[in-house]
Lab assay of single mutants.
Amino acid sequence: GTLHLNGVTVKVPSLEKAIKAAKKFAKKYNLEVQVHGNTVHVH
């Protein structure tokens, strides 16, 4: 999967790991997580 954090793109081995990391990051910075196919966006 691919993880987008505020314009930074990170390749992640699995989508589940990407979503987990995204949710952790989003919670910390009070951001929103959106999943588009195998790409996770945090903004």
Rank of each mutant, 00 (worst) to 15 (best):
G1K: 06
G1Y: 15
G1W: 14
T2F: 15
T2A: 06
T2V: 13
T2E: 08
L3I: 12
L3F: 04
L3E: 01
L3C: 11
H4M: 12
L5V: 12
L5R: 02
L5M: 12
N6I: 12
N6Q: 08
N6G: 12
N6S: 08
V8T: 08
T9D: 04
T9C: 15
V10Q: 04
K11P: 08
K11L: 13
P13N: 11
P13E: 12
P13K: 12
P13D: 13
P13I: 13
S14V: 04
S14K: 04
S14F: 08
S14Q: 06
S14P: 03
S14Y: 06
S14D: 13
L15E: 00
E16K: 11
E16R: 10
E16A: 12
K17G: 09
K17I: 13
K17R: 09
A18Y: 05
A18P: 00
I19E: 01
I19Y: 05
I19P: 00
I19D: 00
K20N: 09
K20H: 09
K20W: 08
A21I: 15
A22V: 15
A22S: 01
K23P: 00
K23H: 09
K24G: 03
K24C: 14
K24H: 09
K24T: 05
F25G: 01
F25L: 11
F25M: 07
A26M: 07
K27P: 02
K27G: 04
K27V: 05
K28I: 07
K28V: 05
K28F: 08
K28R: 09
Y29H: 11
Y29M: 03
Y29T: 01
N30E: 06
N30R: 05
L31F: 08
E32H: 12
E32T: 14
V33C: 03
V33T: 01
V33Q: 02
Q34P: 01
Q34F: 14
V35F: 07
V35Q: 03
H36N: 10
G37V: 07
G37H: 06
N38A: 05
N38D: 08
N38V: 08
N38L: 07
T39H: 15
V40R: 00
V42G: 03
V42P: 02
H43W: 14
H43N: 08
H43A: 08
